[in-house]
Design a protein around this nucleic acid. Structure first.
Lengths: 123, 123
DNA sequence: GAACGATACATGCAGGCGCATCTAATGCAA
DNA sequence: TTGCATTAGATGCGCCTGCATGTATCGTTC
């Protein structure tokens, strides 16, 4: 129990730190930015901010800012939702897709390195 | 691999958030503060800042500030190390020990709740 | 023993996060 | 329609973090 917690803490710290460094230096992306891009690519469609919020481990306000940063970097575009004009959908741009594709191997490499010794984990 | 990472990410977010809330509201401690207190109690002796740094997943600067906060709250005391006058040792106070004892069940309860479904983890 | 690089901890600074709050749009009820 | 509670997302604020750097002490080399 406590051991599991310490394990999670250690892996999280190590991976987060490495991802921040590698993704930042090589691709100009933070872990949160990459995560959001990754989620959008994975679904391969417009997503509501709210949908992203359920999948990413960020508060709604943090997500709002991540999307703002991504938009400023021209990696995604925001548009109002016609069905519910309070809503905003996020759409990945070609440049965003390219940046994600470029960064993906870096992320995989970091995770492979760090979780090499990890016991296979159910779910 | 990626699944393991997502698992770590999810558990870390959930546990961290719950700990922040529970430890904060009930005992006036942040997760980092508790962690440091816990490490000291576990060793049951004076510890050098440096030793703590190896065990806690914080940068040296962050740790320095956590200790400063704990000292302000009178939960630990700082003293210069005679052997190496650059060094600082941290000593838990009676009040610190009491606060830790009081908070420990809260932490255990949170972790038990969150890792109830966790597969036993090697190491 | 004087000089210089290395080490321990503290601190200035910028950036990201969560909480609380704000604004705008929705929808339900009177 | 009008009024009000609810919801989506943006933003002000304070806190915590890491990085870079500052200050003091140590150890080694000449």
């Amino acid at each position: 129990m406590v051991d599991t917690w310490h394990y999670v803490l250690a892996k999280h710290a190590k991976a987060m730190c490495a991802l921040e460094r590698e993704l930042g230096d090589r691709h100009g992306l933070g872990p949160s930015e990459f995560e959001v891009l990754d989620r959008i690519v994975h679904h391969d469609r417009k997503l509501r901010i709210q949908e992203l919020c359920d999948e990413v481990h960020l508060s709604q306000s943090a997500l709002s800012r991540v999307v703002a940063r991504l938009e400023k970097a021209a990696l995604v575009s925001r548009g109002v939702c016609d069905a519910d004009r309070r809503g905003v959908f996020v759409c990945i741009t070609d440049e965003g897709r390219a940046r994600h594709a470029e960064a993906l191997p870096t992320q995989r490499a970091v995770l492979t390195e760090i979780f090499a010794d990890a016991p296979a984990l159910a779910r």
